[in-house]
Design a binder for these strands. Structure first.
Lengths: 175, 175
DNA sequence: AGGTTCATGTAACTCGTTACATGATTCA
DNA sequence: TGAATCATGTAACGAGTTACATGAACCT
């Protein structure tokens, strides 16, 4: 899986601008993929050259012009090929966990601050995803996408619960 | 967080060879980080040049010689610095989720096969981590590392449960 | 006979991030 | 006044992967 595969998937659903694609990465897809503008725009150029997408320039007043990209037949075939490829291993870089794993080298205060801050982060992400869920539930979003969103929320809630338990234990012991 | 930070963390616990470090990445740390031999060995060379680690060559008969790396004072300071740095965002590349997210473009059979295969993968990982948990519980592994391991297991179990639910729904609807 | 474990290493490559540039509008 | 939103783009850089090389012992 490369970013280009995921971008083709996004465009298969609906034409979009680079900016809108980035938004997807930070919301509905955030649970399993992410990409920055610095990779999105060059990929869009590359996909255009490969004739997997085409774009239409929309002139806007007050805002910068935008390019709305659509997937072509060639792009659809490429995406189908991706979907049939063997599933790659999950790759995670979770800095918080690394910190927590070695948190015996921190003071209690630092450790509690670390945990609290992560609880806040996860809670806020749960809120954002839950709001998105409500919004998408109204529209008829397809079931598998809904499942992915839901699983993301549940995973984050699990982390919150577990971290809160850990925190309580640490505080209880402290006294 | 770079691989070099995590490697210093590993060596802070106990001297190890590159091969043993890789093993950690595929077991106890697999929940939050991973690295290949192609990055581990060059990093070990770089850390040696920076005097953050030193190594001792162990001559072995029957097996290739090995280099046992230990962390130095300089390395310890570098790791403490890492630990105090602000926590970076979690980054995930989860190919299975991408496949599932767009699985409406698959046939039911392909979809069920996709889900089944992921259930099997996750279950096998739960087993490996559970076995590791038992093993480490006997030794006195520290509490935060234990928490991280446990959370990893719980997260995987959640995925298994949810996927099994999804699968059952799909099968029920099919008939 | 062939796969797995132990064990280290390098080179080519791909991918993606960070940081920058540009610039108008809207909101607080 | 300054931050956020909308909107696209590039260049330098860094990190890490894949694929290869080497090679003995042990297990099935």
């Amino acid at each position: 899986m490369r970013s280009s595969d995921i971008i083709l998937g996004i465009l298969l659903e609906k034409p979009a601008t680079g900016y809108e694609i980035k938004e997807k990465f930070t919301t509905s897809l955030s649970n399993f993929y992410n990409a920055s503008f610095g990779s999105i725009y060059p990929i869009l150029h590359k996909l255009t050259k490969e004739e997997k997408v085409v774009f239409e320039t929309i002139t806007q007043s007050g805002k910068p012009n935008k390019k709305v990209y659509s997937i072509t037949q060639k792009g659809k075939i490429a995406f189908q090929q991706y979907l049939r490829q063997p599933v790659e291993d999950k790759k995670t870089k979770w800095d918080f966990m690394a910190h927590l794993f070695y948190s015996k080298y921190l003071t209690i205060e630092e450790r509690l601050e670390l945990i609290d801050s992560e609880i806040a982060t996860q809670k806020s992400e749960v809120q954002i995803l839950t709001a998105l869920r409500e919004k998408l539930a109204v529209q008829k979003i397809d079931r598998y996408q809904f499942f992915c969103l839901d699983l993301g929320i549940k995973q984050k809630q699990l982390v919150v619960t577990e971290l809160q338990g850990l925190k309580d234990n640490i505080i209880a012991e402290k006294q």
